[in-house]
Design a protein around this nucleic acid. Sequence first.
DNA 1: CGTTCATATGAATTACTGTTCATATGATAC
DNA 2: GTATCATATGAACAGTAATTCATATGAACG
Lengths: 111, 111
Amino acid sequence: MPHSHEELLLRVRTELPTDELLSDLSDLFKIFADSTRVKILYALFESEMCVCAIAELLGMTQSAISHQLRILKDANLVGNRREGKTIYYFLSDDHVRTIIAQGFEHLIEKH
Amino acid sequence: MPHSHEELLLRVRTELPTDELLSDLSDLFKIFADSTRVKILYALFESEMCVCAIAELLGMTQSAISHQLRILKDANLVGNRREGKTIYYFLSDDHVRTIIAQGFEHLIEKH
DNA sequence: CGTTCATATGAATTACTGTTCATATGATAC
DNA sequence: GTATCATATGAACAGTAATTCATATGAACG
C-alpha cells in the first residue's frame, strides 16, 4: 500500500453491496455472455418462436437450442406456452430489451 | 417444424444484427459476468483506487486483481495512471455505471 | 549500483460451460 | 395400442476462464 488508505477502504466497503447481491448481478450478466443466448433473445424481440424455428434461424441443432432455452427460462428471461406438439418461447418482460440495448449503445459509442 | 414459418424466419433474419456484432455484444457482457470484476467496477464507482487497495478491499491476491484489471482495461472499461510506484485505476466512462445499474434494476424487480 | 515496494505477467491447475450424441418425454394421428 | 413429430434431458467431451505461484518489470531511495 503506498500510504494509508484506510478511510477510503472503509468508505468504499460501506457503499459496496453484499457479496451475494454482486454475485447475483454477475450471474445475470453471465446469461447475456453467450452469443447463442443473445441471438435467441434478439430473435424473440420480433416474435414468439418455436424451438425448431430458432434452431433453423441460428443454424444450430435442436438440442443445443433447447439447452440454452432452459437456461433462459430458469433465469426468468423467457417464458413458453404449448400448442399441441409445439412449444413457443417468448420474452417474459422488457428488461431484457433494455439491458441488451444498453450494451449495444456502449458498443456503438466505442465503434 | 409445425407448419411453414418461412415468412417469420425471413423477417427475423433481416432484423437480426450480424454475427460479429452479436458476438461483440456477448463479449461485452462476458466482462460483467464475473463477480470479481463487478466488485472492482463497483469499487471504482466511489473513487479511483490503486491495485493493492482493491486487493485488500476484496480480500484477494494482488496477482488475481491485476489479471482482472488487465481484462477490464483491454475492454476500455477502466483506465489507469501512474504516480511513482503506485498505479491508480479508474472508470473510463459512465457507460459502466448505466449497464450495471440496469442489471441491478432487473434483480431488484425480480426480488 | 542494489534494495525495496507496487504492479505485471506467464505457466499450470482447477473449475466451469457449451455443444454433441443418444435417449426420453409428451402430444397427436392413425 | 404404434408411429411420428417437437422438445427435453443426461452424460461425455472440448474449450474457456479464474486463481495461484513464481518470476519479471519498473520506479524510488539509499
